[in-house]
Design a protein around this nucleic acid. Sequence first.
DNA 1: AACATACATTATAATAATTCTAAACTATTG
DNA 2: CAATAGTTTAGAATTATTATAATGTATGTT
Lengths: 142, 142
Amino acid sequence: MTKNCNFIEKLREVGLRPTKQRVKMCEVLFNREKTFHFTINDLVKMISEKMSEKISLATVYNTVHAFEKKGYLKEISIDSHKSYFDTNISAHHHFFDEDTHELIDCDESDIDPVNIKKNITGKKIKSVEILIKVASDNQTQK
Amino acid sequence: MTKNCNFIEKLREVGLRPTKQRVKMCEVLFNREKTFHFTINDLVKMISEKMSEKISLATVYNTVHAFEKKGYLKEISIDSHKSYFDTNISAHHHFFDEDTHELIDCDESDIDPVNIKKNITGKKIKSVEILIKVASDNQTQK
DNA sequence: AACATACATTATAATAATTCTAAACTATTG
DNA sequence: CAATAGTTTAGAATTATTATAATGTATGTT
Ligand SMILES: [Mn+2]
Ligand SMILES: [Mn+2]
Ligand SMILES: [Zn+2]
Ligand SMILES: [Zn+2]
């Protein structure tokens, strides 16, 4: 159980003011055993359930983006029209279950390193991500 | 130069009525040497430029989705909040240039086959796609 | 502790992408 | 050509996201 003062320090370290809302969001997002994936909507629900005080939707957006910029969160694109975020900020790949719309992390050991033989002139590779879409056997492809 | 009557047949084959609008969209999308990537907005512009008659935005959406369902187009997710489509319907990977927001196809020979050692119980792999984000050397990571 | 300041939060309005609706239109079949 | 099912259309509705501007808060300074 990480203490709030740790979050306060963590926020200070990257130059974010440890406001009440930011500390609360840290608790909700990072005060847990495992990393997880969420949408802004999920997060708003989680916050409402876990605390009595209201938080403005705009603040959730702002704070998520502030955390993303500071490297506390990663954004994952699977489905246009919906942003998924990930508290697992390490480079990793995903399974996406088309039946349940669930995102599942791939362990590093699940996939051999990708060998890219070409590159774009004058450009540097910033990330390499694999998305494996899965569905029930009896499911028609989306 | 594929003739329009070919598009009419092609549409009939998959059970889509060859309406004026669908045939025009086939021309704009498929009557060319190379495959390409586009957003709905791009497509609307291309249609307006290449022909005098108006087409309703809803029809562009409907028709793109009809084509997607029939396998004439693929949807690519890179950026939430924007749908990219691809006239290259084969399984392939992409570079995404963060500076220009351009999508670039990877040839099959550019990347070794991905070896996935794990799978999700009861689920079948529907697709495996790699997205390689690139940017100028001097660019700060998004 | 009170003050000044920059930064953050809030409610609400604005924007953008997409989908829905219901009326008008068109391709197809007989 | 008439009947029918499917399609297009303009515009309204919906959804996700971002902008605005007023109010509130954290922090360093007196
Ligand atoms: Mn973002
Ligand atoms: Mn789609
Ligand atoms: Zn993840
Ligand atoms: Zn492509």
